[in-house]
Design a binder for these strands. Structure first.
Length: 942
RNA sequence: GCGGGGGUUGCCGAGCUAGGAAAAGGCGCAGGGCUUAAGACCCUGUCCCGUAGGGGUCCGCGGGUUCAAAUCCCGCCCCCCGCACCA
């Protein structure tokens, strides 16, 4: 059958909009405020958005039908840098960008080429997003839509930041970023040619120094990831090559040229003094600032001048590289001679052990592992890397510092780094040096990136223990779906550090007290759900940017201030102001925020932190739900590279209901869903089938109810129960599976059995499915009603409609049919089937079940009897089902009357089997009759 | 490395927190029906064996507990995601 899904969908979308059925305002009903993170519009909405939003919409529709006054609003996020970047790329006619946006985002090329400014991009994509969202039929209250560059929104953000500032939750600090010296800008992942996986690691610098009599001290800044090993240093290493001397603040540092360059991007004052040759320093001595030991400077080829300072301290007891390098020196007199070094100098170097592993004997760990791996020289880089990694890992996790480390003795290695670094810096003998974890890191422009320290940056003080503590405390009271994400959230909250919230570049709101800076885009989208309340009044023209003063928002959100005074000072009509206040009091807090799992470690955390900082406890979010991603035919989607499926295209090609149903059914919770065309088309067939069933049966007036009808109703009640349970747990997959597919399976059986009153469940079936496939349900519903099914009340489970006997009969017939068919497979030219029921032990088992407390107990008793033991599998299944029924209060104390059931359905059996069937025990041989069981009659075919 | 999740029948996935029927549902595939035909729809089959409803082997691997384990316990292997200043 040809069905024009699109026409049906457009029709109902128009109707909903015209009648404003999803516009929500305070009323007497309990409220439910659900929000989905507004999408970021540097492209079209895609299948990923479709998933998160459809889940949200299904919940919104479900809750609405359950009797809640549901507010489901939406806005658009455009602040930040990507939109600016996109505008630049389009302006430059970047080929890749043009390809991706025409091919995957479905932007017509002529239109795309016009999008050369951020403003045009925002306008274009927000229009497209609006169309896409309306075209899929979300039950959004569109009176509240807004964009984050709106002047009014910025007023709101300013208010928010003043509040945070007042609470001292915004502090100044510095932090290291990946930076391109050529572009003079921080670089993001997608700006990189190479090194996306590089992270910034923090080396500890320890200032060894060299005293040359009357000249100034020269600092040899040794960079290390294991500062505790400073207690075991025997010498330092330089590469036999040129280095430089540089003025670093007030000190003179000896560093590699590369290191000097890197230092210029730090917060230090750096000036080049001149070039020096490491070779001139070999054999001379520096002082270990912590132990005051004098140690020699020695050459080593493994030193990488492009890693950190290029000056390395040597700890032969714990660093395989150092141990091997010293051994190399000892055995290479020529090399020593080349640098004028005396052999005794290296021969006196004794490894100093400073870490012990619990329950292991004292040894020299580096020596041991080098020998174990049979590493012969420092040229065996592979072996040394392996040894270093293994040793470091072991010592980090299990190591404890020995007495030689003085005040640190007994501290775990894993606990020492930050503490020691801090102490060293305090004493003026330490520093930090940032470096990439892997190299090279190259910008798209071809320039090598560096680590730059951004100074005097504004930070959100998330590490504040009081703030964090409150968030952790509130988390305990929240509902997190799926539940194991609560632990994930807890960990992430603990892990969260201060976050830089200011940027130089991008779209957004300026920091109100420091207009040089823009508020970073994840930091301006944390409590905006409150803004939806204002947005309605802004869009209707009642509330204007100039009205949105600090005092007004204090009044609206906190109820603080004198109403007359606030109204006067903000220039707003007092009644409007009071209404906004009432709206806010009615709708807040957020009852559910449903989001993709990619936002767990950032947005959703900030969402919690900011609510908790700014609002009183009764307005903190109640629940968060998290869902997984969507892939396309098994491939990951990518906004910037493709493949990508836009929401609009999915709906155009398959229809809104099919798209919705598929995406809801494709996966549960945080599992990823895969969009597979063939499956989507398969689902479309199912939906067409549903529609034609509706056309065929819905309007037929039901006749008086048969036992079969009661079976259908009973089964349907179970589906109602199951669907509600699923939706209450935000399990849309399970819900669609029961409400659609499983009911469909029952309907098939019902029709096959000759059922004629399908319409008895159809009203409820439409309601049951309305949250998932609202258009088709609305269309069918209107065959009989003038109301909107979207506003009907959701079916309730009615236990009185459960008909255990009817269910047992159908179950009996189904298995009987199967058994006979199984036998017929083996009989050529069957003429007649004889059936002879048995009734003995089933009653007995039911008796045991009724007087047993649990299955285990019952089975024990049953299995102690020989005649049952040999039927163990059959019986255990029967008992399991019996217990389930018992728990539901549905256990029959007498089985069905098999004879009667067969008699009544003999024609059905014959029709199905295409052979004569009769109920006749005498024709069944004795041996077969003996093996008959209740529910499993003896069958004999001739 | 740390943290979170996971390995089920051709595929996707239930079931695994309350042990109890080769293990829901969807998709795919095969056969049959309907049809002028195709599609749609309906039925059947889809681990192996089997001329009587049966038997055998199964839920990453190896052990254990139990009348009974995909489910509980112990050990091992493998996979995915996050670790940021970016939306």
């Amino acid at each position: 059958m040809q069905i024009d899904f699109t026409a049906i969908e457009k029709k109902w979308q128009r109707e909903w909009e015209e009648k404003g059925v999803f516009e929500a305002d305070p009323d007497g009903k309990p409220k439910f405020f659900i929000t989905i993170p507004y999408p970021y519009l540097n492209g079209n909405l895609h299948a990923g958005h479709t998933r998160t939003l459809t889940i949200g919409d299904a919940i919104a529709r479900y809750m609405r039908m359950k009797g809640y006054n549901v507010l489901f609003p939406m806005g658009f996020h455009v602040t930040g840098t990507p939109i600016i970047g996109l505008a630049e790329l389009i302006q430059k006619r970047d080929e890749r960008t043009i390809e991706v946006y025409t091919k995957y985002h479905d932007v017509p090329k002529d239109v795309l080429l016009e999008l050369t400014t951020p403003e045009k991009i925002v306008e274009y994509f927000s229009n497209e997003a609006l169309k896409a969202l309306k075209g899929i039929g979300y039950s959004i209250d569109w009176r509240r839509v807004f964009t984050t560059t709106d002047e009014e929104y910025q007023k709101f953000i300013e208010w928010q930041y003043w509040k945070l500032k007042e609470k001292n939750l915004i502090v100044k600090g510095s932090h290291p970023v990946r930076y391109c010296p050529n572009d003079q800008n921080p670089v993001e992942d997608h700006d990189l040619l190479m090194g996306e996986n590089a992270t910034i690691v923090e080396f500890t610098v320890i200032k060894f120094y060299f005293e040359d009599g009357e000249t100034n001290k020269i600092i040899f800044p040794c960079a290390t990831l294991r500062p505790e090993t400073v207690f075991g240093v025997t010498n330092i290493w330089l590469k036999p090559t040129k280095y430089v001397l540089a003025k670093v603040n007030d000190e003179t540092w000896f560093v590699s040229r590369e290191a000097y360059e890197k230092l210029t991007y730090t917060d230090k004052e750096v000036k080049l003094v001149g070039e020096v040759d490491a070779r001139d320093f070999f054999g001379k001595f520096v002082v270990n600032p912590l132990t005051n030991d004098k140690i020699p400077i020695l050459p080593a080829e493994f030193v990488d001048t492009d890693n950190a300072t290029g000056v390395v301290m040597s700890v032969p007891a714990h660093a395989p590289y150092d141990y091997v390098a010293i051994e190399d020196l000892k055995g290479d007199e020529e090399y020593l001679k080349k640098f004028g070094l005396d052999k005794s100098l290296v021969e006196n170097l004794k490894p100093i052990v400073l870490i012990e592993i619990e329950n292991e004997k004292h040894t020299i760990p580096a020596k041991e592992i080098v020998e174990e791996l049979n590493i012969q020289s420092q040229k065996d880089v592979e072996g040394l890397e392996k040894a270093t990694k293994a040793l470091y890992k072991k010592e980090f996790h299990k190591g404890i510092l020995l007495d030689i480390t003085g005040e640190y003795a007994g501290v775990k290695v894993s606990q020492i780094k930050d503490r020691l670094t801090r102490d060293l810096i305090e004493k003026g003998i330490g520093d930090v040096f940032y470096e990439f974890s892997e190299k090279p890191v190259v910008c798209r422009c071809g320039t090598k990136c560096v680590v730059k320290l951004v100074k005097d940056q504004w930070f959100l003080n998330y590490s504040n223990p009081k703030w964090k503590g409150k968030v952790l405390e509130h988390l305990k009271n929240m509902q997190i779906v799926p539940d194991y994400y609560k632990e994930e959230f807890r960990n992430k909250i603990e892990w969260l550090k201060d976050k830089a919230c200011a940027r130089r570049k991008g779209l957004g709101t300026k920091i109100p007290w420091d207009k040089e800076w823009l508020i970073e885009s994840l930091s301006d989208s944390t409590i905006y759900m409150a803004y939806y309340i204002l947005a309605k009044y802004i869009n209707s023209g009642l509330l204007k940017a100039e009205n949105i003063t600090q005092k007004l928002l204090d009044y609206v959100f906190f109820g603080v201030g004198d109403a007359n005074g606030v109204a006067r000072s903000s220039g707003l009509d007092k009644e409007v102001m009071e209404e906004i206040r009432k709206d806010f009091e009615y709708w807040y807090p957020v009852d559910l925020r449903s989001s993709g799992k990619d936002l767990v470690a950032n947005h959703l955390l900030f969402f919690l932190f900011h609510h908790i900082a700014i609002f009183p406890e009764n307005l903190w979010p109640k629940a968060i739900a998290v869902n997984g991603y969507v892939s396309l035919e098994g491939k990951k989607m990518s906004k910037s590279k493709g493949p990508l499926l836009t929401m609009k295209r999915a709906v155009e090609e398959h229809g809104a209901d099919v798209t919705r149903l598929y995406i809801l059914y494709a996966a549960e919770y945080d599992n990823d869903a895969d969009w597979r065309r063939r499956d989507v088309e398969g689902l479309a067939n199912n939906l067409r089938r549903f529609y034609s069933l509706g056309l065929e049966y819905y309007k037929k007036e039901p006749k008086s109810l048969t036992k079969l009808d009661k079976w259908l109703i009973s089964r349907f009640q179970r589906a109602v129960k199951n669907t509600r349970e699923a939706m209450d747990n935000i399990q849309t997959r399970r819900a669609v599976n029961t409400a659609f597919f499983e009911v469909m399976t029952d309907v098939r059986w019902y029709l096959r059995r000759g059922g004629e009153n399908l319409s008895v469940i159809f009203d409820d079936w439409l309601k049951l499915l309305a949250p998932f496939a609202p258009h088709i349900c609305e269309e069918l519903w209107h065959l009989k009603h003038d109301t909107f099914v979207s506003l009907e009340s959701y079916p309730k489970f009615d236990e009185s409609k459960i008909d255990v006997e009817a269910e047992a009969i159908e179950e009996y017939l189904r298995t009987l049919l199967e058994d006979i068919k199984e036998i017929l497979k083996f009989v050529e030219e069957p003429k007649e089937v004889y059936i002879s029921p048995a009734e003995e032990w089933k009653q007995e088992i039911i008796g045991i079940v009724l007087r047993s407390d649990n299955m285990k107990e019952a089975m024990k008793e049953i299995m102690s009897r020989e005649e049952f033991k040999k039927m163990g599998k059959e019986i255990s299944a029967f008992v399991k089902k019996a217990f389930k029924d018992k728990k539901d209060g549905l256990l029959l104390d007498s089985g069905i009357n098999e004879v009667k059931v067969i008699e009544e359905n003999i024609r059905f059996l014959e029709r199905e089997l295409g052979v004569k069937v009769s109920l006749n025990s005498e024709k069944v041989p004795e041996s077969k009759r003996k093996s008959a069981m209740p529910g499993k009659p003896a069958i004999f075919v001739v």
